[in-house]
Structure formats: C-alpha cells, structure tokens
Design a protein around this nucleic acid. Structure first.
Lengths: 117, 117
DNA sequence: CCTGTACATTGATGGCTGTCGATAGGATTC
DNA sequence: GAATCCTATCGACAGCCATCAATGTACAGG
C-alpha cells in the first residue's frame, strides 16, 4: 500500500512541525508526509522560477507571470495554487488582481530541515 | 511544449550552478531545470525518511533501510538511486554491501538557494 | 564451481502531474 | 445592467512516478 502524497495529513498542520534538522534524528512517517509536499512543490522548474520572480520583486500579480514563465493562464494559476497550498506563497486579492508574495517562515523552516546551523 | 524534468540538462552539471538565493534574482530556465530535480528528489516522503536515516547514522547499508521504510528491496534501491542521481547521497560498495552517506555540500547549496544568509 | 546473500534492473500497473482550451466566477467600469 | 478584464475551475490528455514480483548481476564462503 503506497504512502502517496494524497494520503498526507492536511497541510494546515504544517505549522505544528518540530522540524529538527534531518541529521539529528530520523523523520517519522507523519513528519515526512507533511514535509514532502512542501519540497515537492519546489521540485518543478516552472514553480521555482515563479517563486524566484515573486521573491525577487516582493510582490507580483498573476497577470505578470504568464509572460516570463511562458505558460498559459490556467497553468500559472495551477502553479500558484500548488505553491500556496504548500504555504510557500500567499495571495491577496486587490480589485481585479491577485498579488502574491513569499512566506519567509516557510523558507526558514526548510533551511533548518536541511541542517542549517 | 512542456518543460518536463526529463528535458533537464544532465545532473553532472549541478556543480556549475551559481545558486544565488531565490530572493536575489529570478532564476533562468536553465538554472531551474537543473535545480528542480534535486528538490523533486526531496519531495517524496519515503526518500525524506531514507535521507534522514542516512544522515542521522552517518552511514547506512541498503539492507538496513527496507525494514524502517517498510518498502520492498527494489523500491529502496529505486529511491537510493534517485537520491544519488540528485547528488544528495553517495554509495560505496564494500564487499556485498552498499553503504550510503549524505553529501553535505548539496545541502549547503540548497540552504543558500532558500535564502540562507 | 556452487550456493547463498545483497543489490540492481526489468516489466507491469495504478495513481499523480503539468499542460492547455473552454468555461465559469468575481470585480471594475461605463 | 452590460461589457470587460483578471482569475479560478473543469475536462481531457500525455507523460511521469512509486510500487512490487520476477529476474539478473556481483560478491563471499565453502
């Protein structure tokens, strides 16, 4: 019986992670099931570039992502959703536009996981 | 035309990455194509646990991974291969056994990517 | 050389994923 | 309210992936 990503606990629980470095102690299956989707969200080249665009500019509108990413509007919307569900970015609607910015805490969590001092 | 992971440059080129933090400047498509597979390798719960087992123990034999991961031998072999191709672990054959250990440089690279000071 | 052990590879399978066209929702403006 | 613009969702499709049983390969000990 595969431990698919779909079986993972809700991502709302992400904040409850102890998240000590990988090198300290083996991850439990539950911790891994919560963390893996976050890293999987980073495991796509389009999302990496999307994220770097948002991070570098502080705040980016969805409509300004299609062109640099060379992807259709539905595809961009799909990727912003994945990143948002991973807690890596948050969106705020202002009028007709959707503005995205990164969530620095999530990156700090991942750096800690990767053994950052 | 999708920019699939399969289209990414060989992972041998991983060392050539400039890898400035995501927040500094948007990633090029090429940089993203090289980095994404590394993060994708981390985006699986079984591989995360495998990695933490290796990291926490310094060195682990393949035969000591099947039981804690609750996966068959071919599946464990598959995951070690993926992590090794991502440059996150290296294996060394000693007699009949295959010993795995982590590659700290890769983790430092990822921490830097994630905006580590 | 033969046997047993440890690991890698193959083949098959079900599920997941990235992509886009078409369509629907929601906000702004006239 | 109607038209317009931006975004989200749906449906479909092709490719990728995690998994395991079966098989192949390599090594150690008799």
């Amino acid at each position: 019986m595969p431990a698919r990503i779909a079986d993972a606990p809700p991502l709302d629980r992400l904040d409850e992670l102890c998240c000590s470095p990988l090198t300290d102690a083996p991850l439990s299956a539950t911790e891994a099931a919560v963390l893996a989707p976050v890293l999987a969200a980073l495991g796509d080249p389009v999302r990496l570039r999307l994220l770097s665009l948002v991070a570098a500019q502080g705040e980016v509108c969805s409509c300004n992502l299609e062109e640099p990413l060379e992807r259709s509007q539905p595809t961009v919307s799909h990727h912003t959703r994945v990143l948002a569900e991973a807690g890596l970015i948050v969106g705020e609607r202002r009028g007709k536009w959707m503005w995205w910015r990164v969530v620095p805490d999530r990156f700090a969590l991942l750096r800690r996981l990767l053994g950052g001092a």
